[in-house]
Design a protein around this nucleic acid. Structure first.
Lengths: 191, 191
DNA sequence: TTCATTTATTGAACTTGTTCAATTTTCCCT
DNA sequence: AGGGAAAATTGAACAAGTTCAATAAATGAA
């Protein structure tokens, strides 16, 4: 559980005893490639920390087109915060893109952590702030930049993640067709 | 400070004494129309609760085009969470669209609240979650819907706010030119 | 290794949204 | 109430991105 502990320590400082109590309710799970952790319509009763592997968190629109909200690799958290907090049916899918390992925590156990270990409130308050910042930046990037610029921003900002993804997946994240992404790549390569 | 107290009570329950201690550091400020609370380049040293009026929180891109991240009316919070938490120069502007009233709290006072009143961690943890949910929904809406659909979604989802805004502002929020918004409105009207 | 499936590329026609410029309408301001 | 500025509308030409269809390349399972 070293990676999880390091992740927590980035945001708050816990005593050794507190860290053990924090880690207690997390369960290691293996998730095979193409396996779903969540499908739209289900209620999300968990959150998880990615210890190994890669996931996509996406939305299927009314025409069946996939739109990727984010990719989660090692050291990222996954879950549908909307469904999880309100316990209503999810609109999102979470699918493993590689054979992966996660530390899984149930809604119930997470609530107990909040009650028993007050610093956990601070931890998730800070993590929530960082998520907001990331979403805001992505929103502004989508509002103000062309597809070419967003593609370059993505592959230079997250080169290691980009390498692990197909262009279909990157296009679904950037909000463009994969054919158009292919043309962008050609244009860039010719420079 | 009734509106602020009601807003807090929506998320957590505080004893009367705690509520008073929470409200203590907030200062009522009047903000005239067209006045800026924050400009890009400045460090955001405050957060505020809108008691009356309306604000736009926006980004100016490299070409000088304005992109609106959100509008804040009565019962909303404002601030640049990115600049505020990291104390680095803001990329955002916050400008009053009407004569307004806010309850203002400094970075320093907010940190003291976190230390002296542990429930405040929970309050802002929950508010952060809701902000994430809203940003996620907007992101997915922008990825999956046409400008027409987003316009209808906005004016039906926030009819009271929409009434108070110009079409220039709505276009800058939807991520389209105001000329195109004008054409969308014409098309819709002719139904 | 092979065969089937998925992914990537390309071109042509099309749709969505932009830009620029001109005109009209609305809104302030004193 | 009048005049000036900002906002809204409209049209025409243009650019960005999509769709469809066909082909090539890469991947993966038996």
């Amino acid at each position: 559980m070293e990676l999880l502990k390091q992740n927590v320590a980035k945001h708050i400082s816990l005593l050794p005893d507190e860290m053990e109590r924090f880690c207690g309710p997390f369960i290691l799970k293996e998730v095979k490639k193409k396996q779903f952790l969540l499908k739209a319509g289900e209620v999300c009763r968990f959150e998880a920390f990615v210890n190994k592997g890669c996931f996509k968190i996406f939305y299927l629109d009314t025409k069946g087109v996939e739109h990727i909200l984010y990719f989660a690799v090692e050291d990222w958290w996954i879950g549908d915060i909307d469904s999880f907090t309100t316990q209503t049916p999810a609109q999102l899918y979470i699918e493993a893109l590689e054979d992966s390992e996660i530390f899984f925590i149930s809604k119930k156990d997470k609530e107990e952590l909040y009650n028993n270990l007050p610093k956990v409130e601070k931890l998730f308050r800070i993590m929530g702030q960082k998520t907001c910042v990331a979403l805001q930046r992505r929103m502004l990037s989508n509002l103000s930049k062309t597809a070419d610029e967003r593609y370059i921003e993505f592959i230079t900002g997250y080169p290691k993640i980009a390498q692990r993804l197909t262009n279909l997946q990157i296009a679904a994240y950037l909000g463009i067709s994969h054919e158009f992404l292919s043309k962008i790549r050609k244009k860039i390569a010719g420079k």
